[in-house]
Design a protein around this nucleic acid. Structure first.
Length: 553
DNA sequence: GGCGGAATGG
DNA sequence: CCATTCCGCC
């Protein structure tokens, strides 16, 4: 229901922008006139009446350019403005995509500042002030600074739009669109970003069939600046809470974690793209809602293509549904099949969550082959730049965690692995990318909680009480634990647990969270007996039994 | 150049 | 909230 509400179409409104510079030093005619002149892109947009604006093959939903759509602010926000400039060829001498995905360079800081000043009627604007505003985006995770590159910043797109549009391909590298530009399926293939703007959502005149839910969403949309879908800045979003409620009413959905912490007062960016209507996009190749159709098991949610700088993965154009060398997607079934196959292979290759598998109803994707050895993970580089806090030690703490530390936690405390992850601040960017890649983005966990959400959360997992690091091999498979991301190991362990539990075998508790040391040197455990882990319940029973024995002595 | 605190304003 | 402005610091 919500999805339909949010899909209400609207007429495209355009951001008023300073006139494009005619000459090299042409100044905008309009000095301080926030409204009333046309956007440079207006009229050139290839899809003027659609829900998204496209230029040279990539685009953002219109609301991303609309000042009235700037959540939390009636006026245009700087990042909107930056995007606006970035998508205008007229300003490519001033600011342009460059470098990594989402990176852009302010080639002419003074000019950008001047334009911004014109836009905001702040004649005294300069790059120093503008950059201060940009720096405020760091905390919001809208932007990063690209270190070492002057005037270079980077958008967090992979958690913004593209996360929920996994077909968006980066295969345009070398093409006319820089790789750093956020690509989007072009209007030529009939795809449209669902017309969903915060202003629509926030319209007080809407007929709200679910006022509570709706207002919840609206609040979040109003507060959020970016629909930063998997952004760590928001954990248990109201939207998702609402969606949970909604889906509970409608029936279970597969990728809502079974456990959730209490709602946290955090920035709420995500949600917009997550609540797109499912049945409204018949021409879209995208599985419309990241929530996935009720019947679909694994909605596609991420793609290695979206995180090239982290995974060093650039999708082969030949495997892309894009026309070779073009900026437009091809959605003919063969291409899609190849692409899906490639994607699925990538999911395997990169040990992504099974949820990352794309689901495209009419196309059967052959099962990929897992490569012999893990891919390209630098052996010396810790796969995760997290600082794992060791789990609480001591059996007492473990067995009575509910009363003690997780007093504020929800009822699912026993199902939540007591793991805390501290993102290392310096590696925030990679950290986040990693989140998107390795974790299911539907788990809108904050960074600290990312490990609290195993791929299949209904399984109860308890951290090991043992402080000693039993370095048993984690993998029963051919691959050793070397170079396997930590979360993947968790996932595999979980899978292993599932299997073992099904077989009703195994002992040797292993469900523990590894300490910080282990993330730095991933210790391969060759030679040891194959990992045998007790199922969680069995483990807990064993532990409780041992505790009882100890206490009775 | 870049960062972030502080005060301030809309 | 989202900047804007100023500023000290690195």
């Amino acid at each position: 229901m919500l999805l339909y509400l949010l899909s209400i179409d609207h007429s495209t409104r355009h951001l008023q922008m300073p006139s494009p510079r005619i000459g090299s030093d042409a100044k905008p005619v309009v000095s301080c006139q926030p409204r009333g002149y046309r956007s440079p892109g207006e009229g050139r947009s290839s899809v003027p009446e659609s829900g998204n604006t496209e230029i040279i093959g990539f685009a953002f939903p219109d609301w991303a350019y609309k000042p009235e759509s700037s959540p939390g602010s009636r006026q245009i926000q700087l990042w909107h403005f930056i995007l606006e400039l970035l998508r205008k060829e007229e300003y490519h001498d001033v600011i342009a995509w460059q470098g990594d995905y989402g990176e852009f360079v302010i080639k002419d800081p003074d000019e950008v500042a001047r334009l911004w000043g014109v836009r905001k009627c702040k004649p005294q604007m300069n790059y120093d002030k503008l950059s201060r505003a940009l720096r405020y985006y760091y905390n919001k995770r809208i932007l990063h600074k690209t270190k070492g590159k002057r005037f270079t910043y980077k958008f967090n797109f992979n958690k913004l739009v593209l996360v929920n549009y996994p077909f968006i391909d980066m295969g345009m590298a070398g093409g006319p669109v820089p790789q750093s530009a956020p690509p989007v399926p072009s209007g030529g293939t009939h795809f449209r970003f669902p017309s969903c703007t915060p202003s629509d959502v926030l319209s007080p005149n809407e007929d709200l069939r679910s006022p509570t839910l709706y207002s919840s969403v609206a609040r979040r949309l109003a507060r959020g600046s970016v629909s930063d879908c998997s952004d760590g800045t928001s954990a248990n979003s109201e939207v998702e809470e609402s969606l949970n409620e909604e889906h509970l009413r409608r029936g279970p959905i597969p990728d809502i974690p079974a456990f959730r912490g209490p709602p946290l007062p955090r920035l709420a960016h995500e949600g917009i793209f997550r609540v797109y209507p499912r049945p409204r996009e018949p021409l879209s190749p995208f599985p419309v809602s990241p929530m996935g159709a009720p019947g679909s098991l694994l909605p596609p949610q991420l793609s290695p293509a979206m995180t090239p700088n982290h995974m060093n993965y650039t999708p082969s154009p030949t495997l892309s549904p894009m026309y070779p060398g073009g900026n437009h997607f091809s959605f003919n079934p063969e291409d899609m099949k190849r692409y899906l196959q490639a994607h699925t292979q990538s999911v395997y290759n990169y040990h992504l969550s099974p949820r990352a598998f794309l689901h495209y109803p009419s196309i059967v994707v052959p099962q990929p082959q897992r490569p012999e050895k893990p891919l390209h993970l630098p052996p010396d580089e810790p796969p995760f730049k997290f600082k794992l806090q060791p789990p609480p030690l001591g059996r007492k703490q473990r067995e009575r965690p509910i009363g003690a530390e997780s007093s504020s936690s929800s009822s699912s405390s026993s199902s939540v692995p007591q793991i805390k992850v501290e993102p290392i601040s310096d590696a925030e960017e990679e950290d986040e990318d990693l989140m998107v890649e390795v974790t299911d983005i539907s788990e809108e966990e904050e960074d600290e909680d990312v490990f609290k959400a195993p791929t299949v959360p209904e399984q109860k997992v308890l951290p090991s009480p043992l402080p000693s690091r039993d370095e048993e091999p984690q993998s029963a498979g051919p691959e050793s634990g070397r170079c396997i991301p930590l979360k993947l190991r968790f996932k595999r362990r979980w899978s292993e647990d599932q299997r073992l539990e099904a077989e009703g075998s195994c002992e040797d508790s292993d469900k523990k969270v590894r300490g910080e040391q282990e993330e730095t040197h991933v210790v391969p455990q060759s030679g040891g007996a194959p990992c045998r882990r007790v199922s969680t319940d069995l483990q807990r029973a064993t532990e409780e039994l041992s505790l009882e024995n100890r206490d009775s002595q």
